[in-house]
Amino acid sequence: MLIALPDGSRREIAGDIARIEDILKQLCINPEEVIVAKNGRIVSEEETAGGSDELKIVRFVHGG
Protein backbone atom coordinates (compact mmCIF):
# COMPACT_ATOMS: atom_id res chain seq x y z
CA MET A 1 0.00 0.00 0.00
CA LEU A 2 1.33 3.41 -1.02
CA ILE A 3 0.77 6.25 1.43
CA ALA A 4 1.22 9.95 0.69
CA LEU A 5 1.90 11.71 3.97
CA PRO A 6 0.94 15.26 4.97
CA ASP A 7 4.55 16.45 4.60
CA GLY A 8 4.52 15.46 0.93
CA SER A 9 6.65 12.34 1.35
CA ARG A 10 5.53 8.90 0.25
CA ARG A 11 5.85 5.62 1.99
CA GLU A 12 5.25 2.04 0.90
CA ILE A 13 3.78 -0.13 3.63
CA ALA A 14 3.44 -3.86 3.30
CA GLY A 15 1.04 -5.80 5.42
CA ASP A 16 -2.50 -6.93 5.84
CA ILE A 17 -5.63 -4.90 5.44
CA ALA A 18 -6.02 -2.58 8.40
CA ARG A 19 -8.40 0.03 9.67
CA ILE A 20 -7.37 3.54 8.64
CA GLU A 21 -7.61 4.57 12.28
CA ASP A 22 -4.90 2.04 13.12
CA ILE A 23 -2.75 3.03 10.15
CA LEU A 24 -2.81 6.65 11.35
CA LYS A 25 -1.91 5.52 14.85
CA GLN A 26 1.00 3.54 13.48
CA LEU A 27 2.21 6.64 11.61
CA CYS A 28 1.83 8.77 14.79
CA ILE A 29 -0.69 11.05 13.05
CA ASN A 30 -3.50 12.65 15.06
CA PRO A 31 -6.71 11.66 13.22
CA GLU A 32 -8.38 14.90 14.33
CA GLU A 33 -6.07 16.93 12.13
CA VAL A 34 -6.25 15.06 8.85
CA ILE A 35 -8.55 13.69 6.24
CA VAL A 36 -7.73 10.56 4.36
CA ALA A 37 -8.49 9.67 0.77
CA LYS A 38 -8.39 6.06 -0.38
CA ASN A 39 -7.81 5.83 -4.11
CA GLY A 40 -8.76 9.49 -4.49
CA ARG A 41 -11.96 9.39 -2.42
CA ILE A 42 -12.33 10.70 1.12
CA VAL A 43 -13.08 7.90 3.56
CA SER A 44 -13.79 7.68 7.28
CA GLU A 45 -11.19 6.25 9.61
CA GLU A 46 -13.42 3.25 10.27
CA GLU A 47 -12.79 2.04 6.74
CA THR A 48 -10.02 -0.37 5.92
CA ALA A 49 -7.18 -0.20 3.44
CA GLY A 50 -4.37 -2.45 2.27
CA GLY A 51 -3.01 -4.36 -0.70
CA SER A 52 -2.72 -2.09 -3.72
CA ASP A 53 -4.71 0.79 -2.21
CA GLU A 54 -3.28 4.27 -2.35
CA LEU A 55 -3.84 6.41 0.68
CA LYS A 56 -3.41 10.14 0.78
CA ILE A 57 -3.31 11.84 4.15
CA VAL A 58 -3.80 15.60 4.14
CA ARG A 59 -3.74 18.00 7.04
CA PHE A 60 -6.80 20.25 6.74
CA VAL A 61 -6.92 23.77 8.07
CA HIS A 62 -9.43 25.79 10.03
CA GLY A 63 -8.34 29.43 9.85
CA GLY A 64 -9.98 32.31 8.06
Binding site: I35, R59, F60, V61, H62, G63
Partner: peptide, 28 residues
Protein backbone atom coordinates in the same frame (compact mmCIF):
# COMPACT_ATOMS: atom_id res chain seq x y z
CA UNK B 1 -10.31 27.82 5.25
CA UNK B 2 -6.64 28.77 5.44
CA UNK B 3 -3.55 28.37 7.55
CA UNK B 4 -0.16 29.67 6.53
CA UNK B 5 0.52 28.79 2.89
CA UNK B 6 -2.25 26.22 2.87
CA UNK B 7 -5.97 26.35 2.21
CA UNK B 8 -8.99 24.35 1.14
CA UNK B 9 -12.34 25.03 -0.49
CA UNK B 10 -15.47 23.18 -1.50
CA UNK B 11 -19.03 23.97 -2.54
CA UNK B 12 -21.86 22.48 -0.55
CA UNK B 13 -25.26 22.20 -2.21
CA UNK B 14 -27.87 20.80 0.22
CA UNK B 15 -29.60 17.72 -1.08
CA UNK B 16 -26.94 17.20 -3.72
CA UNK B 17 -23.46 17.14 -2.24
CA UNK B 18 -21.72 16.05 0.90
CA UNK B 19 -22.26 18.54 3.70
CA UNK B 20 -19.46 20.01 5.78
CA UNK B 21 -19.97 17.39 8.50
CA UNK B 22 -19.82 14.56 5.93
CA UNK B 23 -16.36 15.77 4.89
CA UNK B 24 -15.10 16.93 8.29
CA UNK B 25 -16.99 14.94 10.92
CA UNK B 26 -14.78 16.37 13.67
CA UNK B 27 -13.48 19.86 14.29
CA UNK B 28 -9.69 20.05 14.31
Amino acid sequence: AISGYQGQATTIIPGKTACLACIFPRAP
